[in-house]
Design a protein around this nucleic acid. Structure first.
Lengths: 238, 238
DNA sequence: ACCTGAACACCGTTCAAGT
DNA sequence: ACCTGAACACCGTTCAAGT
């Protein structure tokens, strides 16, 4: 029996010792190969040639792991998209579109972004870019401060909404069910739905996205913040 | 050995035979008792005194089950909230607030509403109510048609966002991480964030919610739909 | 037709024990 | 300190077999 270590038939060089960065790097690679839904603690551990429990030394739980992966991905949001040639509002549409596009490919990350507030450097860079664009557009600071949240909430939700559709088995079946239900809605029970008819579902997703963003920008620019009331200071959940 | 059937010591009367309605009814009851996250196929089957596979005769999968539960819950959205005394926009704020409030208690349903388009009768009634309020407010029909989606997307997202927070183990820890990150953001790297400072996180959730809805209403009322282009007809995903 | 037991192929997280 | 094997307590879905 040779004394050579019994596990040297892997191609991986020497089995690198674990580290938080290494774990996240591997998670990102695994995600690009197989999608985030396959980046489970168990699978990630297998990719790192160890057991799942080992990961818990470096990562608190799955949510934290996903948050780290998210910020990594956000590095590729196109923040520079056409700075001056077009109007500031068109740039906002593009920047948010880039953000949404990335998340659409990874709906589980969109969910993560919605559920645990991201705070990584790349997310902050996105917030900074949007705030500076709003300023450029002459939006008052208090409205920008509360509005940027709304813009990002919208973009994230759209990604979660569209990203998950079609990923499910029954491709767009619920879409059709809604279309059918809207058409069936007769004038007695649902008069306004009946009156608007097909226009409720008209337009390409891109056209709707763009119009939605313009709605948000117009509303943010024009809606004054409420007068300060007592206890209007901290975050605090309901 | 007596021939008496060996399972008559349950209190449940005679074991009712399964039906889709009965299954959903039990699912709703189970959800009210233990929360939706515990309404799994296996647990629901156990509550119905059968095996999980039996449910698949009546319900295609978990997503369909959740959709049915969602519409059931939506029956209690307060659609009548203060019809005329206050302005139509305040009524929109209340109706959406009622919808969001219900979903906040069941974040998994909010996720379901975001991911598979609801089309049940109670959801349609909510759409109808919002459309009629927008009309009452003098909003042009094409803008209402595309705007109602945005209102519901927003309300659903807020519910998912707030509902899941605090449900996680580390209560509001990410919130704090974001606050810290924003404060740390120095003027060189993130000048606009630094300039706006604490106002980025100011306000109660209720105040922000109300302002957000007003932003949406103002934007919807004032933003014209894009000129019709080629291929602007059907839904169709990106 | 309706129902079921049992299996398949997984999960996240913990914890006592090892090095 | 870092790492691990093994276990705990679960999942959704399928399918051959029964009634």
């Amino acid at each position: 029996m040779p004394i050579i270590a019994p596990r040297s038939r892997r191609e991986r060089p020497a089995k690198p010792s674990l580290s938080r960065d290494g774990i996240i790097e591997t998670a990102v690679a695994l995600m690009r190969e197989e999608g985030l839904e396959r980046v489970t603690m168990r699978r990630l551990a297998a990719a790192l040639d160890t057991g799942p429990s080992s990961l818990y030394v470096y990562v608190r739980n799955t949510a934290e792991l996903h948050a780290a992966v998210l910020d990594e991905l956000l590095g590729s949001v196109g923040l520079k998209a056409g700075v001056t040639s077009e109007g500031w509002d068109n740039v906002v549409v593009r920047v948010l579109g880039s953000y949404t596009g990335i998340l659409i490919e990874h709906p589980a990350l969109a969910r993560s972004a919605l559920v645990t507030r991201p705070s990584g450097p790349n997310y902050l860079a996105l917030v900074e870019r949007l705030l500076s664009l709003l300023r450029e557009g002459g939006v008052a600071d208090p409205q920008s401060a509360w509005g940027v949240d709304l813009l990002l909430l919208f973009a994230t939700s759209i990604a979660l909404e569209h990203g998950t559709r079609g990923l499910t088995l029954d491709d767009g079946e619920d879409e059709e069910a809604l279309a059918e239900a809207l058409r069936q809605a007769d004038a007695t029970g649902y008069p306004t739905i009946a009156a608007l008819g097909d226009d409720l579902l008209s337009g390409t997703p891109e056209a709707r996205f763009e119009w939605h963003v313009r709605v948000l920008l117009a509303g943010i620019a024009l809606t004054a913040r409420p007068a300060r009331e007592a206890g209007n200071a901290g975050p605090g959940l309901p």
